[in-house]
Design a protein around this nucleic acid. Sequence first.
DNA 1: TGTTCATTTGTAGTCATTACAAAATTACTT
DNA 2: AAGTAATTTTGTAATGACTACAAATGAACA
Lengths: 144, 144
Amino acid sequence: MICNHYNFVKMDKIGAYLSKHEIKPSLQRLKIFEFLYNNKNHPTVDSIYTALSPAIPTLSKTTVYNTLKLFISKGIIRSIHIEDHEVRYDADTIPHGHFKCIGCGGLFDFPFDHHLQLQTNLAGFQITEEHFYLKGYCKLCGAN
Amino acid sequence: MICNHYNFVKMDKIGAYLSKHEIKPSLQRLKIFEFLYNNKNHPTVDSIYTALSPAIPTLSKTTVYNTLKLFISKGIIRSIHIEDHEVRYDADTIPHGHFKCIGCGGLFDFPFDHHLQLQTNLAGFQITEEHFYLKGYCKLCGAN
DNA sequence: TGTTCATTTGTAGTCATTACAAAATTACTT
DNA sequence: AAGTAATTTTGTAATGACTACAAATGAACA
Ligand SMILES: [Mn+2]
Ligand SMILES: [Mn+2]
Ligand SMILES: [Zn+2]
Ligand SMILES: [Zn+2]
């Protein structure tokens, strides 16, 4: 159920990855990206902030917002908008689908062939992003 | 480019449509659904409110919010969350794709075969909704 | 060390949405 | 038709996620 498109070996590789994308690897940026990389359940701003606060006691929620916005502008993470009241983040930028469970709130990855859909009447349109997601009940929450 | 999945002939048919879905057809509800039905550009709460205010001078934005929420709970419209700062609404509930132009902000329909994707590793998951959308530049905004 | 620049932080402000209760409208009963 | 109850609409206040902004901190460099 989990996509593994990238292959960092160690924490210190993340610094090089950020640098390669013109992002100076400060402590906060390293930790935030590391958290996103290790937690493939698509965290929210709040869950990132709550998780990192103990390790970085001075961390500000504004920094989390700013850093995620920076990451998005550099193209190394994506934001996921499924519910109107929550934004979730994903360090996996290779196109894949998402399943949102309306029971437990879990957000799961699944692969899909993103070239199947393009045989549609969008001639002359320039596509830069594609998003595909499902909603329903996951295996554990199955309503029955 | 526009999907036409439903076939109301006249305004007064909308009352029956609402009733069939356990929605008492008040003036506000009729007008709001009619507007959504006639404007397939996926309006926002604000554009609905602004458009209907002249005809219904007493209209409250709260009523627009409440009515849209009611329509969604009864399953006759859908909300579309693509950007984090705007929610758009669609009276067409039959699965179809959306193309969001990052130039002009336009949101266009396109058909797609929603059964193509389901050959994926989601065994045991109950799917209740599927959403597929693209972002990029429309024919008019084409960046070149 | 001193100077400059980039990053982080806390606070104040914004804005879309919601909660809530009063007002208005509709439905029902006598 | 008048009275009563239920539903719907409306306006205002409150909420809460996100942003703007400027001070504080920290890194880079001479
Ligand atoms: Mn993902
Ligand atoms: Mn549509
Ligand atoms: Zn679940
Ligand atoms: Zn356009």
